[in-house]
């Protein structure tokens, strides 16, 4: 069925109702989380005890708001740091990969491309433990042989960054490669023809063309890193990123503080996504 094919009214109505229900289902959990961030109660549940900004700005026990809750603020900082590192790494490697698969033909390319896709079909938790096992064994080996303690190879932020990067790089590669695929090579040839060197041609013509995809890949990588849980869980050390910190709190029992953090997360990521869409539109 498409709009140009006449359908019984009842069928159309039922279909529309189904789609509406679906979107309600989609929105419900998020709306609930957002609304209870303003409940003046110790629990994010009914009954409704009145409206408060306390879970954002409260300064005293029992109502300490997000903006005065040190551990949460620190966790947000940690997450942002990790996300920026992962994004930079992923976009860099993604760009390099995109050029490699688009511009070069070499033996083993097909196999390498499949390997590049593999991280997408490896469960995140398995990625996490394999990196954990491998790095720990190297660290242990280094200690046994030379009594050299490589801090970076112990669970901690470095491993978290590497672990997240290991699969986010695939996604940024695909995003950038998709745009490079659409690039008209003759534009580069025109630049060469007009006197540019090969590198200059890429820098002045191809890279600006790829910019929307690179920004898109950066934002996607940032969001994926920020909300990653499975891989991070296995590699995390003492500095917990936000999702892990929230998870630990949630296990102990929740207060509307978590709702407030969640609402801020929603706003932040929506904002980022809008920025990305605006950039895609322009590109």
């Amino acid at each position: 069925m498409i709009p140009t094919i006449p359908q019984p009214r009842l069928l159309t109505a039922a279909y529309t109702a189904y789609v509406v229900t679906f979107f309600v289902f989609l929105a419900l959990p998020l709306v609930v989380v957002a609304v209870f961030a303003f409940n003046d109660s110790q629990f994010p549940s009914l009954p409704w005890e009145g409206f408060t900004w306390g879970w954002f700005f409260g300064e005293e026990r029992p109502v300490i708001g997000v903006f005065h809750e040190r551990p949460i603020l620190r966790a947000i900082g940690t997450s942002a740091f990790v996300a920026v590192c992962v994004s930079i790494l992923s976009v860099g490697v993604g760009l390099s990969n995109a050029f490699l698969f688009n511009r070069y033909r070499f033996p083993g390319q097909g196999i390498l491309y499949v390997f590049m896709l593999l991280p997408l079909v490896i469960p995140g938790i398995v990625l996490g433990i394999s990196i954990l096992v491998f790095s720990s064994r190297i660290a242990n080996g280094a200690w046994d042989i030379a009594e050299w303690d490589i801090e970076a190879l112990r669970p901690g932020l470095t491993l978290v960054i590497l672990g997240q990067f290991s699969f986010i790089a695939t996604i940024s590669t695909l995003v950038i490669a998709a745009r490079l695929q659409k690039f008209d090579r003759s534009l580069e040839e025109a630049a060469l023809n007009l006197g540019a060197s090969r590198l200059t041609a890429v820098r002045t013509v191809t890279l600006p063309y790829l910019a929307p995809a690179m920004i898109g890949a950066f934002v996607v990588a940032f969001l994926m890193s920020f909300e990653n849980f499975n891989t991070t869980l296995m590699l995390v050390g003492s500095d917990a990123p936000l999702t892990i910190a929230m998870f630990d709190r949630l296990k102990e029992g929740s207060t509307p503080l978590l709702n407030a953090v969640s609402l801020l997360l929603m706003l932040g990521s929506s904002l980022l996504a809008l920025v990305m869409i605006a950039f895609q539109r322009r590109g």
Binding site: V33, F229, T243, S270
Partner: peptide, 18 residues
């Protein structure tokens, strides 16, 4: 797409509240 811009943790938390 909107719900997936926020962490899985938030989504799960929403279902817990519900």
């Amino acid at each position: 797409l909107v719900p997936f811009w926020v962490s899985e943790l938030v989504r799960t938390f929403g279902w817990m509240i519900l």
